[in-house]
């Protein structure tokens, strides 16, 4: 009896897992909470930082190149 109960209990656990898996596509869940925008904000911030860094590198190089020409 104990074994049967345990089996049933475990079976119910897996049923729940299946139910979760079938619940629509991932995108619906991801976008439903609206928290994906947090990830996008972070990714874009990193990208922006790196791009601004590239621009400053460019400017510093330009300065040295100018000084180099004057000499």
């Amino acid at each position: 009896m104990k074994k049967v109960a345990l089996t049933l209990f475990l079976l119910m656990l897996t049923v729940q897992l299946f139910a979760q898996q079938q619940g629509g596509s991932l995108s619906d869940d991801v976008y439903a909470s609206g928290k994906i925008y947090v990830v996008v904000a972070c990714a874009v911030l990193i990208l922006l930082g790196l791009l601004i860094f590239l621009f400053t590198l460019d400017r510093r190089l330009k300065k040295i190149e100018k000084r180099n020409l004057e000499k």
């Binding site: 994906i36 925008y37 990830v39 996008v40 990714a43 874009v44 990208l47 922006l48 791009l51």
Partner: peptide, 9 residues
């Protein structure tokens, strides 16, 4: 930047 934003959304 455009492709990163819309790549996610």
């Amino acid at each position: 930047i455009y492709s990163t934003i819309w790549g996610f959304l």
